[in-house]
Amino acid sequence: MGKVIVVTSGKGGVGKTTSTAALGAALAQRNEKVVVVDFDVGLRNLDLVMGAERRVVYDLINVIQGDAKLTQALIRDKRMENLFLLPASQTRDKDNLTAEGVEKVIGELKKYFDWVICDSPAGIERGATLAMRHADIAVVVTNPEVSSVRDSDRIIGLLDSKTLKAERGERMEKHLLLTRYDAVRAERGDMLKVDDVLEILSIPLVGIIPESSDVLRASNVGAPVTLAEPRSAPAMAYFEAARRLAGEDIPVTIPEEKRGLLGKIFARRAA
């Protein structure tokens, strides 16, 4: 049986979808079978970031409502044969997600895949609670700023009360993924520092993804950053996070952008 990861945050725009795609591609490069599932019904994005938007025929809602088989809705990645996408519906709304339907789909996916990664919508409503409901592991994506931290705190509370694991009295495994981190700005006090965020949220850190234009560029060409620019600093950080999720015990580092001496001087001046 595969493991179910939910990538969640509460707040929107912190990098859930980007992180889902990057972690999915990173785990797939370890030769494990991975499916990324978009739960953002009505506002789907994962298909774009995965570069599969023109290949969507059936979606999660079709499968839940019995209009399509799971195998018909799964889209195999063109670059990696063990990476799949289950897209969300763009034309329906979140009311079409039912607890029984989601349970059935996740249960089936767990049989075929080593990793089922659920990309949660923002918010704390139906879509988000159903995305986290069947998870074994939660990746809480947080930006180093106060509103994102508070929303993550709220989500951690829900992970500990509204999930199947919590209802069975077990503990949900939770990991903090700090995204869009800029060491220079954190040092200057414009951003929260890693330790501040960790003190407030008090869950283990799985990775620090540096703020980088590589991430945006990868999204725009429709590829996870771990496939498009595997040598870039954010990609390295996602690879490290994936290794930790797979159970490896390695220290968390803050990967830095590799710039020449001139680049460093200009970066300082621009910042």
Partner: peptide
Amino acid sequence: RSGQSVIFAEGDVTILGSVSS
């Protein structure tokens, strides 16, 4: 955590962790 509330009118409450914003 944020959004949670602990209400206990019968006596003392001890929290081993933190009380979030």
